[in-house]
């Protein structure tokens, strides 16, 4: 075997690492561009976005699925955000290093790792059957909220952590109480980080299907939901059934649905990056 000089072997290795990076990133970009290329016509088909589906979903639009997805996102964030931030504040600002804290941390790690379909089973067992909420928006939202909780806690906690400890000491040393210190010093400076986390979890919620399969979704509803006890259509599930269960559906309809879903996800990602850049520029310390 030829012994390469260290310089040359560095060059070759860097090239390999670069190629690996390309290989890691390009498929993702490819997926996004295929969906955009094949689904972009939806922008010129206003009907598709605003009409109810008809003819066994072969015609009409995906309006109820868009509404359903937005509803689930809004209610889920509304429920899980305050609890998640509360838990993050507890862990970062109050918790002592004891058994309970270790248990909480372990629980969060494991909640984050529980497969989404198992959340679906949990939601079916507790919300749909035990609490008799039925297959409904509220059952789905509660399931999603439990599922998003660890994500919100983790991102909020690292946002709280990024606020220098010295600010807390300075405020406390002036006789300001712990809670007021959190409320007026820590939280305002942690908001950008928390916001970025929330927006990325919105992107995730928009794409969730498995936890909603038995808790909230309907194959087809002829009307928009009237209350939180109704079933809903959502974009990712609609995409799944049109792609796998309806054999003679037009491919463009499937891709148009995928495009809509991807647009929500991409928009959230761009908002997150804009917030991050904006606040990094205007950072006060």
């Amino acid at each position: 075997m030829i012994k390469l000089s260290p310089r040359l072997s560095q060059k070759i290795s860097y090239l390999l690492l670069f190629l690996a990076t390309v290989l890691a990133i390009v498929p993702g970009l490819l997926i996004i561009s295929i969906i955009i290329a094949k689904g972009k016509d939806v922008f010129f088909a206003w009907d598709f976005l605003t009409l109810m589906p008809i003819n066994g979903m072969l015609d009409g639009g995906i309006f109820p699925a868009i509404i359903g997805t937005l509803l689930l996102i809004i209610i889920t964030i509304f429920l899980s955000l305050p609890i998640g931030i509360g838990a993050a504040i507890y862990l970062n600002e109050y918790a002592k290093d004891n058994l309970l804290t270790r248990m909480i941390k372990l629980s969060i790690v494991n909640l984050a790792g529980v497969p989404s379909i198992v959340y679906g089973l949990f939601g079916l067992g507790i919300f749909v059957m035990y609490l008799k909420l039925g297959v409904s928006i509220i059952a789905g939202v509660l399931t999603l909220s439990v599922m998003e909780l660890p994500v919100i806690i983790t991102t909020s906690r690292s946002a709280l952590k990024s606020v220098p400890y010295l600010f807390r000491e300075a405020s406390l040393s002036l006789g300001v109480s712990r809670w007021d210190t959190i409320k007026y010093i820590v939280l305002p400076n942690a908001i950008p980080g928390i916001l970025t986390g929330v927006i990325l979890s919105i992107a995730r919620i928009a794409g969730e299907t498995a936890p909603l399969l038995f808790t909230a979704v309907a194959f087809y509803t002829p009307y928009l939901p009237h209350s939180i006890y109704d079933q809903v259509m959502i974009l990712p599930y609609h995409l799944y059934i049109t792609a796998t269960q309806i054999p003679n559906i037009g491919k463009d309809r499937i891709f148009a649905t995928a495009f809509m879903l991807l647009m929500i996800v991409l928009t959230m990602n761009f908002i997150a990056i804009i917030i991050r850049i904006y606040f990094r520029k205007n950072r006060k310390w």
């Binding site: 010295l166 600010f167 000491e169 300075a170 405020s171 406390l172 040393s173 002036l174 006789g175 300001v176 007026y184 010093i185 400076n189 006060k284 310390w285």
Partner: peptide, 25 residues
Amino acid sequence: RKRIGMLFEMPIPLPMSIYDNIVYA
């Protein structure tokens, strides 16, 4: 702490205006 104030080794202004730093507490 209101009766016993403390000045730290490094100056730690709070991330707000000069005016607000004083009226905050």
